[in-house]
Structure formats: C-alpha cells, structure tokens
C-alpha cells in the first residue's frame, strides 16, 4: 500500500471513524495546525486549553489508531485582530513552540489583511527564526492574490529562510507567485471552496512535483479527511508513478516539517504500534469495545 501523510488536518473536529478510515487508506501521520474554532475566543485561557489538547488528548487519540500526530502552534490571522486576546496569546507561544510534537509555527498569515494581521504575522515569523522552526502560512479566502504577494513581502522583510516556509491553500492563480520563491507550496483539497483532486493533478502536470505539498485541511466544515489518498488515486489515474505519488503525498511534507528536528522520517513511514488498553489521564477513546493491540 502507498503511504501518505496529511500535513494539514484539524483532527479535534473529526471522529474516530475518520482516524480508522485514514489509517486504512495508508495515512501514517498527520499535522494539526492550530487555527480558529469557528467562533472567536474571548480569553487567552481558551487558547491554552486548545494548545494543550493538540499536544495531549488529540495526540493520544491519533495513536489509538496507529497514526503519528504532530501539531503547529500559532495565533491565526482572524483572531490576531482582537488585541485584547492576541497580545496575551503571543506571549505564551514561546513556551509551546519548544514542546514535543510541535513541528512549526502556524497557521499564521492573513484573513482581512489588516495592520494588526501584519504585525502578528511578522512577530510570529520572528519567533520561528528565534526557535529555528518551519512556518505554515495560511493564505486568505478574500483578495487571495494580494494576500499571497503581501505574505511573500513580509517573509522577505523578516528575513526568514524561505525553505523554512510553506505557503498553503494555493490555487492556479497564487501558485505561480510562490514558484518564484524558495518557499514550499501547499494545496488544500477541500470540497467546493479550495482545490479539487483533478485541479491538483493539473497543477502537478504543469509545474512538477518539487516542493509541492497536498493536504485535506479537513475541519469542522463539510470536508474530507481522505482527500490526500484520493489525490494519490487521481495522480495514478493521470499517469503519475507510485514513486511520484509518494514524493508529493508523503516525502515532500515530511521533509518540510522534519526541518523542525521534531519529526523522524524513518519513524513516521510506519504506523505506530496500537495498544488501545492505554489511557490518557485515565480516559480512553474506547466505549466498551474490545481493545485492539497490534
């Protein structure tokens, strides 16, 4: 079976069925970027609990299904606009960026493209430099071209090495802007609002596979946690080799985030051993089922 890695998926919003199906489809590892939760948080404590969940319970839950779970930590652009909370979140980020399992600063970037978003994007790029971590940058839904150009400009202003940055949610119009840089190129295969498997295949045919990364960005919206393996199937159907599929859908994302020193490529290619007898803070994902051990 081909092996896959989904480098952008919000598993706190997904079910155990999703984990089971992802593992069955060959996904051996995921990265869960910190992002907003569908409605604005009103205190820094909500961020602390969320970050702790990404590092704790969710990582444990993934392991129950043999999936390696890593996360990125950051202040998302939407909530960067609420200064009453954003400044406090910025203050707590350093203590999270050094935790086990944190492989990047992210998702950061632009939403409304405001001066506040500028400030927190630059500050977090500086943090990434300071902690020598890769960065996951979200590109906005509105004024996507303007937001992508401005993102590249800020990256250059701050002076972070471009090979440590992945710019995500690219499409036919924004990918060419990023190709002129040394940044990695992220694409989200997400029903209706982002990219489709077929469009992704067309981009790979046109621009090649170098530094090209694909994710599902599955979250609490109508989305599909199997979009990475489905893109693999579409690539094979279009004539790409299995080696090319694994290059884009496993090696590229793993190589990018392995720059953190927190992700061992030799390990994430193999599913974690499963022992569902284990517990996390006396809690289990099982509800009376027979524990799986393999």
């Amino acid at each position: 079976m081909l092996k896959y890695f989904d480098p952008h998926i919000h598993m706190v919003s997904r079910t155990t069925d999703d984990y089971q199906n992802m593992a069955a489809a060959g996904i051996t590892g995921v990265i869960e970027p910190a992002f907003w939760q569908g409605q604005a948080r009103t205190s820094v404590g909500s961020f602390i609990d969320y970050f702790d969940t990404l590092l704790g319970w969710e990582r444990f839950r993934a392991s129950m299904f043999g999936i390696h779970h890593f996360c990125t930590i950051g202040l998302n652009p939407k909530e960067a606009n609420d200064l009453s909370v954003a400044n406090e979140v910025l203050e707590i980020l350093p203590r999270y960026l050094v935790k086990d399992g944190v492989v990047a600063v992210g998702e950061i970037g632009y939403d409304d493209i405001t001066p506040e978003e500028d400030r927190f994007l630059a500050a977090q790029l500086e943090l990434a430099k300071q902690f020598n971590l890769p960065v996951l940058v979200h590109t906005p839904h509105r004024d996507k071209i303007g937001g992508t150009k401005r993102t590249l400009a800020v990256i250059r202003e701050v002076g972070i090495a471009e090979h440590l940055v992945i710019i995500d949610h690219l499409n036919e119009l924004t990918l060419p802007l990023v190709l002129d840089s040394d940044c990695w190129r992220g694409h989200s295969i997400y029903p209706n609002t982002k990219m489709s498997e077929q469009r992704m295949v067309a981009l790979l045919q046109q621009y090649g596979t170098e530094k090209m990364v694909v994710n599902s960005a599955a979250d609490w919206g109508i989305s599909d946690p199997l979009k990475v393996p489905k893109t693999g199937q579409a690539m094979l159907a279009a004539g790409f080799s299995e080696a090319q599929v694994e290059q884009v859908l496993f090696h590229n994302p793993v190589d990018f985030f392995a720059q953190s020193g927190q992700l061992d490529k030799a390990l994430v290619g193999t599913p974690l051993p499963i022992d569902q007898r284990r517990q996390w803070q006396d809690n289990s994902a099982l509800r009376g089922q027979e524990p799986v051990i393999k």
Binding site: D143, G146, N171, L173
Partner: peptide
C-alpha cells in the same frame, strides 16, 4: 481589481 481577481479564481476552479 479585487472583483476581477475573484472572477479569475472562480473561472479557474470552474465554479
């Protein structure tokens, strides 16, 4: 320009 960029995006995505 913003509206035309959005148009291009929607056309590229065949939406």
């Amino acid at each position: 320009q913003l509206a035309l960029d959005l148009l291009d995006e929607q056309l590229a995505a065949e939406r």
